[in-house]
């Protein structure tokens, strides 16, 4: 029984994304950021997007392209300190920014991908990040209910994929990618290499293919994926 083939073309798959979509984007800094998928989203120009990503990339790359083209309505993120454009847009009220503690952002995405409604934590108690959140008392301790965080789409960068959508990631390019792949209604993965079925050892698969809807093979990587000159 052959596995389904989910390989597709970049332009076609990004047309699935409508205006107003919520989109999770992989990456922590450059490693794991799906620059080519983002670039196509900028070319197509979908508007009023909610972007969920650990950081907002640095100025002049990745999510910053979407910010500069005015496609982002809201950013759910843990840190935007390396991108002065994002800070300026937030301060001028041109985008809404929701800050989430980094591990809580990861866990809210993870539990969504695990089919759960949320979790209870003491992280943030006594700080501004706990304000307005639902309190839960369990075994005599007070915690905060953190809801699962889902999205319409996930844009993932993988090192290697097979046509069915099994994925592997390289070094610290893993970060949020396997989490967002599980938490979106439609997961689109770009991969540096697409290898034939069976070429990835089943025990080495990091994101199992049933979580992945579409696979796009990248051409030669553009410079933005390379070493950052600061």
């Amino acid at each position: 029984m052959p596995m389904p083939d989910k390989t597709t073309d970049m332009a076609g798959v990004i047309t699935l994304i409508p205006d107003g979509a919520s989109i999770m984007v992989g990456g922590f800094g450059v490693p794991g950021s799906p620059f080519c998928l983002i670039e196509e989203l900028v070319r197509q120009g979908q508007k009023n997007l909610t972007i969920i990503k650990n950081d907002s990339n640095e100025a002049g790359m990745g999510v910053d392209w979407l910010l500069q083209s005015g496609q982002v309505k809201k950013l759910i993120t843990s840190h935007i300190g390396l991108n002065p454009n994002a800070v300026r847009l937030m301060n001028e009220g041109l985008i809404e920014v929701e800050f989430v503690a980094q591990g809580i952002l990861a866990e809210r995405i993870r539990v969504a991908g695990a089919g759960l409604m949320g979790f209870v934590t003491d992280i943030g108690m006594g700080t501004p990040l706990a304000e307005g959140k639902q309190r839960v008392t369990f075994e005599g301790k007070e915690g905060i209910f953190e809801p699962a965080l889902k999205a319409d789409f996930a844009l993932v960068h993988a090192d290697t994929a097979d046509p069915f959508g099994n994925l592997t990631f390289n070094a610290t390019a893993r970060n949020f990618n396997p989490l967002i792949a599980m938490a979106a209604r439609c997961t689109i993965a770009e991969a540096e290499r697409v290898v034939p079925l069976g070429k990835i050892d089943p025990g080495h698969v990091q994101t199992p293919a049933p979580f992945v809807d579409h696979v796009v093979a990248l051409p030669d990587l553009p410079e933005v994926y390379g070493i950052v000159e600061r």
């Binding site: 843990s78 800050f99 503690a101 980094q102 809580i104 992280i123 943030g124 700080t127």
Partner: peptide, 14 residues
């Protein structure tokens, strides 16, 4: 200065 909390809360607390 309000660039986001990153991982600091969880590191400090745990």
């Amino acid at each position: 200065f309000a660039a986001g909390v990153g991982g600091a809360i969880e590191l400090a607390q745990k």
